[in-house]
Design a protein around this nucleic acid. Structure first.
Lengths: 216, 216
DNA sequence: TAGATTGTTAATCGATTAACAATC
DNA sequence: TAGATTGTTAATCGATTAACAATC
């Protein structure tokens, strides 16, 4: 138990590629594909076939030699590896433009994430609904979170409140945090944090463009 | 010229850390800090001091031995490395929830990115403004882009239109694309693409949580 | 069977960490 | 000068790529 569940020696790079495989496989399935080779899959998403085989091999043997991978089977397998078969309850804290956008993001539903609450402090926002999910006052975070057993909290508040909200989420028993505030937040080790810093992407783009011969 | 401008042998990991250094340095500056050591900076953002020194060393010598780094000087230097001293013109294509949120994202201004246009096909959205910037019909993309010399296009349209919009952006002479659609887009080599796939972050969070001993 | 494609081991490449001389 | 901290070289670690035996 200790080894199989707790010790994860899989590289972060591999884990970040799995969702891409998952997505592309689903697309292929929609196109009616039943079997796919690592070659074909790799071509579709710009990854080498060896990389794909290696990544998958960390978790088991999902393919058939001389044949390839059964699409629906591999989707199910990767889904299980990623824990997408679990019905995760998520909540958005901070219903500004970004929080609003995230709450409306359709792809999350299709991955099995279930938005069960939103929180804000603005009286005008309290009580508003998105797809049947309500905005509560931040004061009720703990109460609502416990009632609805929320697993994942999404921080979409201004930077200066990020740590405060993180503390409240932790106190309310959240297991993971997806942090959009451009600031490092401190949480107990047991709580997983994924930082999604949007300025990194744009800045790195700027880096590469600044080094090209400009065309305009 | 060939070596200094074209060949970039800096690792992607390093480039992705630079914006974090930049941000943290600015924060430190606001707090009145004038000199910072790699030790202190590292502590603030959870990176080892050696890593920081190594990263910076790829671009030059910015510190003083026995002293540390002058905060304002290092901010200027990293800003230049990232090309943030250039006045980038950006445009958002697709003014849905996400596009709207991105157009309103305040951090971009402070990094020197200038939103100069938005595009959509919805007649209700055409003509709307955010901070003085207008939403144009997608049909006018090329015309408006050329008139305003837009360097970077942000794709925030539904997945199925992503490639189409990418083609239009390329035709309009864009140099870089920041793609939020969860799909690989094909562009000529000269155009830089950064993919920002939001489902990756959430899925990887799910992966780690699924492997923990659950607390609820 | 012959051709195809996986799973896995070995070789290479790249990035991080450790150590320390240089020097403020 | 002594203490501190950088910049850089060497050692380690990890991830990707190449190669190929296993087998469908």
């Amino acid at each position: 138990m200790k080894d199989s569940k707790d010790k994860i020696s899989i590289s972060k790079a591999t884990i970040d590629r799995l969702p891409l495989y998952f997505r592309t496989l689903r697309l292929s399935q929609e196109e009616g594909m039943e079997i796919i080779s690592s070659e074909e899959l790799g071509q579709r998403l710009g990854v080498t076939p060896e990389q794909i085989r290696k990544d998958l091999a960390s978790f088991g043997q999902f393919g058939k030699k001389g044949v390839g991978y059964y699409v629906s089977e591999l989707i199910r397998n990767i889904g299980e590896i990623l824990g997408l078969d679990y019905n995760w309850h998520i909540a958005v804290v901070g219903v500004g433009h970004l929080g609003w956008a995230l709450a409306n993001y359709r792809n999350f539903d299709s991955l099995g994430f279930n938005l069960v609450a939103m929180f804000d402090v603005d009286p005008n926002k309290i009580g508003q609904c998105i797809k049947g999910t309500e905005v509560f006052h931040l004061d009720r975070l703990k109460e609502v979170m416990e009632e609805r057993t929320i697993h994942i909290g999404i921080i979409a508040v201004p930077e200066m409140y990020a740590q405060e909200v993180a503390d409240q989420l932790v106190a309310a028993g959240v297991r993971g945090i997806w942090n959009f505030a451009p600031r490092k937040i401190k949480v107990p080790e047991a709580v997983r944090v994924i930082n999604e810093d949007l300025s990194v992407g744009l800045s790195s783009l700027s880096f590469y463009l600044a080094r090209q011969t400009p065309t305009n």
